[in-house]
Amino acid sequence: MKLERKKDVSPKYLLIVLSVICIALTVISAFFPDAVKPIKEFTGKFMTPLQEGANDVGSWFDDKVQVFGDVKELKKENEELKKELTQYQNDLGKQEAELAELQTLRDLYDLDEMYPDYKKTAARIFSVNSSGWFNEFYINKGLNDDVYEGCNVICDEGLLGIVVESYDDYAKVRAIIDDRANVTAEIGSAGYLCNVEGSLQNMDNGYLLATDIDKNAIVTEGDKVITSSVSDRYLYGITIGYVTSVEQDPNNLTQTARITLTVNFSDIKDVLVILDRKQEVNY
């Protein structure tokens, strides 16, 4: 009886009712983000374990497929690697001696302050935005592991992104190549300030643009681009990439440089989250 009555509701009216719900939710989430956070949290509690499980299945499958790779190739590679290993072991002793020397020199110049050792935690990516428009992904650490909104995310090679939403057991990260991302950075040893703009279009061609460099700045090919100390969201000294070319802007006031990123965004599985956050100043 109940079902019968339900069927009588015209789809048109249902459409109107649901549209109103959608619009109301949009307005609420735009103006009061905290009000809808419980909804996200609640759904996330059900979905993220499933996603992590599916990700594990994917990893397992990936491993199994790789086992079927050519054994001969592996043997050959093994031999080569062994040779390399002995060479590296020889090198290691030398490097260690040099490292000790470097450390004493650093202590001498008090450079420790400049490259502080940030507290980090490892996390794994378990889900990514598949729309092709945005570069966002989910990691399996959240508030319970002291990962808060605004934490920087890096991998071995350099800066990856920043945590934009954090929940109990997982967090959402926006990559620096996302079209909406902007990073204040500095170039070279002189530390000229610039703004690294994330861009879908440029990233497709393999570079990002560093804009608003002072026109008098001397920027050359190969200069290292790192996060700046004046950035209010990114910690100082994380590698972003290297300059490949530089150009004077038509306005004759600024320069724009093309930079190649050190991180390969097409093959990332494990990331490091820096637990220290940038000090905030309320003006």
Partner: peptide, 23 residues
């Protein structure tokens, strides 16, 4: 719905932050 979402968000773009998956 849940299966489709899982496949779309996890497996098809496995290990690829710039992944495109069928919708």
């Amino acid at each position: 719905i849940i299966l489709s979402f899982l496949l779309q968000s996890v497996l098809f773009s496995f290990q690829n932050v710039r992944g495109i998956a069928p919708n």
